[in-house]
Structure formats: C-alpha cells, structure tokens
Design a binder for these strands. Structure first.
Length: 314
RNA sequence: CGCGGGGUAGAGCAGUGGUAGCUCAUCAGGCCCAUAACCUGGGGGUCGGUGGUUCAAAUCCACCCUCCGCAA
C-alpha cells in the first residue's frame, strides 16, 4: 500500500523538550495528519512552582492536535487504541514506550536519536560525544524496538563538531537536523522506500545520563579533556568546581599555556584571565558563574572576587 | 506557602546609621624604541521601588518589583 501524500498518513508523535519540536513542526508543515501528540505531564517550573507545559505540548495545542500526557505510559496506553494511527514518530519523549503501544502502529514506530548509532545509545548522546572530544556526531532515524536504541537505522545525518561551541549549540543543530530529516524521511519510511540497516553490535557504546556527580568537574583530566568536558555540559547543566564552599560553574574554557608551575587545581594570579592549573597545562576559565550570581566573564569575576592567594578550586 | 544568595558608576564587587569606595573599563597627560605594561590626573552613581523609624538611612522596619544557585 502506497501513500500518495503526507496528509494520508496518520501520525502519533511522542516528544517532550524543545529539541523534539523540530520534527513535529516539520511533520505539520509537510501536511502529515498528526492525530495525537504524547508528551510528559506538566511540571512545576523553577522557583515559582508554576505548572508549565512542555515545549512539544505548546506546539500541539497551537496546531489543534489532541494531547495525551500519561503519567506512566508503560501502564496507561489504552487511549491509543481508539486513536487510529499508521505510524509512531518519536524524539526525546522521556519514558520507555511499551511494546504493546509500538505494535499498535501498523506501519511501524521510528525514533530520532542524537547520535550516529550504534555509538552513544542512551540518555545523553550529545553531551557524551562532546565530552569525549568526538570529531563528529549526528542524528539517526531508527526503528523503535523493545531494546533501547537498538533498532535498524534508516537514515543518518552527520554533524561535524569541530566548530560547535558547546552542548547548547549542538542541541539546536541536532534539532534542526532532525527537523530536516523528518520532512522527507517519514514519508519514505511509511512507503517502504528506505531500507533499515541493522546496527553493528560490536560497535555499540552507551551514553549514560548525566548525573549530579558528573557535573562536578574532575581535576585529574588533562587540559584538552577538561575543556571538552566543560563544553559537553554547557550551558545546561554546567560543570562546576568548588571555590571554598560555593559552586563555581564553568561554561567555557580555553587552553592558556602548557606551563606546569603550580599545583593542580590552583588559581594562578593574572589580571585578565581566571587561570587554572591542570596536570599538563593551564586553562583559562572564560565564562563562569558563582552560585547565586549571574554568568560573567572570567576577567570580570577577578575584578570583584578579592581572592586571597594561594587559592584553589576543587 | 520547598531551601538559599543577590540588586551600589559601563562591568565585577566592598561598604550594617553620620559628608559613597575598590578593581577593571573609559578619557586626558606622562614614561618608553614600543606596549594590552607602568606612573599621574579626570569624568561617570536620585545606592531596584514605595512607605515608615530617625536630627541623620546604601545601612533599621514593612510591602513590592526583579535576577540567580539548589531541590523538584
């Protein structure tokens, strides 16, 4: 059975954060018949505690698409039976989707994943790729199967990382790439025009979720790895070190010199740059934020910090 | 009523009742082969807002606005 045009195809879309709006917008723009959007429940936002709808929900409401927000989709998916859809498209939904629900889509279920599979399966592929200093990553359109991120890959789009400043920038690029792919790839997929390629199990790696401990910048890495580590966590959630008992987040760092004249973790006195000694060189902390303060340049921080030397970060 | 830290010169900060300061930036001049270095001098602030206490408030009290960290 062939579909003549996107409007003949009934799509159930699953997604939650900002990055997941790109494929949804692309599908809507192309004229797909999006019969439902599934997203995480509204959550209290920040200090105010106001309930806030997910970015994907906002788009769905604006487009007049019915929204479903099961607290636990593992148990709560009966509503989907009456919906009647041909295909499931997913990106960053945030819950594991039960096989029974996947099977409800006669033409299959696909997911946009933020890595070049089989590398970086899991929760934080973009951050891990940057932290590991990869030269490229990308987005993969893959079949959803019960094993996480293990399905056949239909299409990939490569994103070079050389000029990507940080995770936030990659996040935007990844979203845009997924959106571009969604414009044509879903239509080809439902018409059976693309062939799934099984993942090479011997090349599988995992990108574990970023934990609270991960956010604490380790000082035993070399300068290059440290800079990449910071890059992978910037601007959200931000890698931090302790200055006294306060957290000092570092959003951007650069190599300053290869000197090894001080102790690892020591701040080196300098008028313009906030310099940190590492085991194989000195890095400049260019954009930082002290707990309770705004983000600022390292030099600006030095103007008012009144540090007493020697001073250490840990 | 989740916990907590801020809002003082363009930037970053100090200053808890008595004529508003520091570092950087900026402007002028000087030194120097030269300089982002150094020296001298200058400009720039109704101290988030409103009300109150006081002879006197950036500083104490009340309320409000606003920014941020943690936790969710």
């Amino acid at each position: 059975m062939k579909f003549e045009k996107p409007s003949d195809i009934k799509v159930l879309y699953l997604g939650t954060p900002k990055i997941a709006i790109y494929p949804l917008l692309a599908l809507l723009e192309e004229g797909f018949n999006v019969v439902g959007v599934v997203t995480q429940a509204d959550k209290p936002n920040g200090r105010s505690g106001e309930l806030t709808a997910s970015p994907v929900k906002k788009i769905a409401l604006k487009a007049g698409v019915p929204v479903f927000q099961p607290a636990k989709i593992r148990k709560d998916y009966e509503w989907a039976k009456e919906l009647g859809f041909d295909v499931i498209v997913c990106m960053a939904y945030g819950q594991i989707i039960p096989d029974e629900l996947l099977k409800m889509a006669p033409l299959g279920a696909v997911n946009f994943h933020g890595s070049l599979l089989p590398k970086y399966r899991g929760a934080a592929p973009m951050q891990r790729a940057l932290m590991n200093g990869e030269s490229e990553t990308g987005v993969s359109l893959m079949e959803m199967v019960s094993k996480m991120d293990a399905g056949d890959v239909y299409e990939t789009s490569v994103i070079p990382l050389e000029n990507v400043a940080n995770y936030s920038e990659l996040y935007e690029k990844m979203g845009a790439a997924a959106g571009e792919m969604a414009k044509h790839a879903i239509f080809k997929y439902v018409n059976g025009e693309v062939k799934g390629v099984p993942q090479d199990e011997s090349k599988v790696t995992f990108a574990e979720k970023i934990s609270v401990e991960d956010e604490h910048l380790p000082l035993n890495l070399n300068a290059k790895k440290t800079i990449n580590y910071i890059r992978g966590l910037s601007y959200e959630p931000g890698a931090y070190l302790y200055l006294g008992d306060k957290k000092l987040k570092v959003f951007k760092a650069s190599l300053f010199s290869e000197e090894k004249a001080h102790e690892v973790g020591e701040i080196i006195q300098n008028k313009k740059h906030l310099l940190l000694q590492l085991k194989d060189g000195v890095i400049s902390l260019d954009e930082i934020q002290l707990e309770g303060k705004k983000m600022m340049a390292g030099g600006a921080f030095l103007n008012g910090a009144r540090l007493t030397f020697p001073c250490y970060l840990k």
